[in-house]
C-alpha cells in the first residue's frame, strides 16, 4: 500500500470528530437535531471526498507528462538538480 499513516489518521480524526464527536456534544436546544444532522453529513461528505482523492493517488498507474522546461524548473526549484 502506498499510503502514509499520518495524513490518513489526521483527516479521519478531523472529520470523524466533526461527524461523530461534535454531534454528541451539541448543547440541548430546539434545533439540536438539525445541527447534529448538519455536522454528521458535513463530516461524512468531506471525509469521503478527501478519501477518494487520496486513494485515487495512492498507487498511480501513470505519471505526469511534463514539458522539458517544466522538468528543468522543477528539478531546480524542488531541490533535485539534474546531473
Amino acid at each position: 500500500m502506498g499510503a502514509a499513516a499520518l495524513p490518513f489518521i489526521i483527516f479521519t480524526v478531523l472529520w470523524g470528530g466533526v461527524g461523530i464527536v461534535l454531534p454528541i456534544i451539541v448543547p440541548k436546544n430546539p434545533n439540536r437535531g438539525i445541527i447534529q444532522v448538519i455536522l454528521m453529513l458535513t463530516g461524512a461528505c468531506c471525509w469521503l471526498f478527501w478519501l477518494c482523492c487520496y486513494v485515487a493517488q495512492m498507487n498511480p498507474l501513470i505519471g505526469p507528462r511534463l514539458d522539458k522546461h517544466t522538468i528543468l524548473v522543477m528539478a531546480r526549484a524542488w531541490g533535485n538538480p539534474l546531473n
Binding site: Q57, P60, R65
Partner: peptide, 21 residues
C-alpha cells in the same frame, strides 16, 4: 519535448500528497 515521470521509479516518492490533488 516532454517526459512522463515514471510512477514505478523514484520519481514518485511512494505516498500521495496528503490533502487533495
Amino acid at each position: 519535448t516532454d517526459i512522463m515521470l515514471d510512477p514505478a521509479s523514484e520519481d514518485y516518492i511512494g505516498y500521495p500528497y496528503p490533502l487533495g490533488m
